[in-house]
Amino acid sequence: MRRLILMAAMLTLAACSQQPSQSGDANNTPSPKANTAPTQTASAAPNAVPAAFLGVWDGAKGHCDPDSDMRVEIGKQHLAFYESSGEVKQVTRDGPGTIELTMAMDGEGEQWTQKMRFALSPDAHQMTASPVPADHPGMATALKRCPS
């Protein structure tokens, strides 16, 4: 429970910095599948984050500065938050424009496994990050894509 709260707090304080996005990320949004259960991504490696999610993100009111508390950098197999980072172990698609990541986290002298859900806006310029399971509704964090 402490780790869930810690991760949610980190997202709330540090969730908006990704690696520079490539142009056309919005065009790489997964195609919708009606009434399907979550499945692993069809990328080369089962733990590769889809291109539409890659880059630097910051809190909705953040300035995308490297020292922003809300900054999160999302790479194909790695995430970096304020004072913690995670190796992506599994990527599961959970509908069009939504993924669930299982990550091996490390930060502040601790290690833990964390699941997070990331949902893109239709234009892929905004995203919502929330812990899984979402038993704490107030823990969702609104993020915006930072310029590359």
Rank of each mutant, 00 (worst) to 15 (best):
M105A: 10
L6H: 01
E110I: 04
G107R: 04
N47E: 05
A37R: 00
S84P: 00
T29Q: 10
H136T: 14
S148Y: 07
D65L: 15
S23R: 15
K89P: 00
M139R: 07
A60W: 09
G62W: 03
I99Y: 02
P32T: 07
N47K: 11
L143Q: 04
D106R: 15
D69A: 14
H78M: 13
R71V: 05
D67Q: 08
T29P: 05
T102C: 03
T128S: 06
K76F: 12
D58M: 07
A26R: 12
N27G: 15
G86N: 04
Q111L: 11
N27M: 11
I74F: 04
R3L: 02
R2G: 02
E110T: 08
M70L: 15
M70Y: 15
G95D: 01
H78P: 00
T102M: 08
L4G: 00
A80S: 12
N47H: 14
Q111M: 14
G109W: 07
H78K: 14
D58R: 13
P20K: 02
H78F: 13
S21C: 05
D135Y: 03
E108V: 09
W57R: 04
N47C: 08
G59M: 11
V72R: 11
M127S: 02
W57A: 04
G55Y: 04
Q90P: 03
P30D: 05
G24R: 09
K33Y: 01
T39N: 06
S43I: 13
Y82P: 04
N47Q: 10
D25R: 15
R145G: 00
C64E: 08
P133N: 10
S84T: 14
T36G: 03
E110D: 15
Q18G: 14
Q77Y: 02
V88I: 13
S68K: 09
N35M: 03
P38I: 01
A45I: 09
F118N: 02
C16T: 13
M1S: 12
S17A: 13
F118P: 00
G95L: 00
Q90R: 15
T141V: 14
D65R: 14
V49Q: 00
G24C: 08
L6D: 09
F53T: 00
H78A: 09
V72F: 04
M116F: 06
T41F: 01
A51V: 11
V132N: 01
M105Y: 07
T128N: 11
P50V: 00
L120S: 03
N28L: 12
A119W: 01
A42S: 11
P122Q: 07
A37M: 00
M7P: 02
N28E: 13
S31Q: 10
D135T: 08
D123M: 04
P147S: 12
Q77E: 13
V91L: 05
